[in-house]
Design a protein around this nucleic acid. Structure first.
Lengths: 95, 95
DNA sequence: ACAGACTAGTTTGCGGTACAGACTAGTCTG
DNA sequence: CAGACTAGTCTGTACCGCAAACTAGTCTGT
């Protein structure tokens, strides 16, 4: 059954995934600014996306300040494509 | 902020609203078959859509058997259009 | 006449989860 | 040394989706 992937469907994560699909790589602050999520929230959503291996999170340093870089994995990219297809399938019915 | 309408965003209800946008009028059984939801589930989702006045529910009889007909209200139609716009806005970023 | 299936629900209880806000920990800036 | 910044984790609340059980009436077959 072509169902909507709940992990991606959640608006906060949909934003994140859509952004990552576009930019290929983003740091924590950029994502926070774009999505307007609180730190805690963004952190836990990224955690969930990492659990399902849709993103990979690289913790590095910019000088001595921690820098978290997030990237979509191939699996995540596929899932997002599938999600778009499922969504289009739903939407197509409505016209 | 152009956010996604949570009432519509829920997959089950998204299906319902998309179907109603297409057919203009549908009975309970048709919706149940199309969405593959349980009765209880469909019932409560319809209840939620009715609360927000996105659909109107007319309870009539086909002969002596109860027949529930569901229709999208103008408000519901507008909300769905807005939803599609918001979604397209999100998706556009990802290419 | 009666069992079983059908329409169309309501109610209940479980489990999951999004979200804000408080807390931690280290760093740089004035 | 205070205050702001990066990047979190943790906690508690409050909601919500979902299945399953229950209600209530009707029709179908034997």
């Amino acid at each position: 059954m072509r169902d909507l992937d709940r992990i991606i469907h959640e608006p906060a994560r949909l934003q994140i995934v859509a952004l990552l699909a576009a930019v290929k790589e983003a740091d924590f602050l950029f994502l926070q600014r774009e999505t307007a999520l609180t730190k805690g929230n963004l952190s836990s959503h990224l955690g969930k996306l990492e659990e399902t291996a849709y993103v990979e999170i690289e913790k590095t340093f910019r000088g001595k300040i921690p820098l978290t870089v997030v990237r979509l994995t191939p699996k995540g990219r596929v899932a997002f494509t599938e999600y778009r297809k499922a969504l289009n399938g739903l939407m197509r019915k409505s016209q």
